[in-house]
Amino acid sequence: MIKVEGLGKSFKVAKRTEGLRQSVRSLFHREYTTVQALKDISFSIEPGEIVGYIGPNGAGKSTTIKIMSGILVPDQGSCSIMGYTPWKERVAYVKNIGVVFGQRSQLWWDVPVIDSFELLRDIYKVAPQDYKQNVELLVETLHLQDILYSPVRQLSLGQRMRCEIAASLIHSPQILFLDEPTIGLDAVSKLAVRQFIKTINKEKGITVILTTHDMNDIEALANRVILIGRGSLLFDGNLNELRSKFGTQKTIVADYQQNVNPIQIPNASIVSWTPERAILNVDTNKAVISEVITQLSDQLELIDVSIEGKPIEEIVLQLYKEYQI
């Protein structure tokens, strides 16, 4: 459905000036630097997938999204989405996609939500029955009944985001691009938005590509993540792969009957130790967890043992660090 190959894009940026004198000089002359926003990005996405597109700020996430939604023309590479080249056949192509920019609104501030929906119906030339059916479905799944007739300025951020997503689905697109859909939302609204994205993906088979900084979004939604840093693709695979590849550090917490002698476990580092409790770090590449536990039970009278993997949030942070992005 989506095939991206060797995508590259660079921008020219004016150098910032400092100090009054430099500012005066820059009245006449200005220097530019070239920033490589994307380098040789390739991936393909099958219909019905939910893909989390992650990376730190400035990594090139939104540039990719902009290219894939037909806004930007890349310098190199090709991209074929449903048989279209997004930047070449803009008008024909964008009928098939929905885009939500989490930080901006497509709803009209001063009029009821339903009016915005109707305008979108006319923009996308949606047939009346289809429109009616779609709105009914959206209202039901997103619980919009009570807010459909209030002006947007009176809605909370969470309500608004639900309406935003609904608005980008009125023309039944097959692909939905979500650019930070949960930014600034409270916990309850986040859950609702995630639930909804899941539902439309399952029921209507819409392919979803979302960028986010919230790893919980990814964990709840995406079976596949694409990690990008400094314009390059760093990882493409499912979440478990990411975890097993990078999340090899496990933490073992053991509670036991009082034991004064410190324990000795090969291949594990002891983070803390008291006569009642020990916390150990184990690298699963070097040691097998069950063996570590066997050794623990040999040396101690265990009461309770818990094993924790690193949260995905930390794995990603660690990745950012490792790649120095």
Partner: peptide, 18 residues
């Protein structure tokens, strides 16, 4: 400035009309 022109580009209508 607000980046709203991107929105216009993802809609299947002429930019002038929008």
């Amino acid at each position: 400035i607000k980046g709203e022109f991107d929105r216009i580009l993802v809609r299947p209508r002429s930019t002038v009309l929008q």
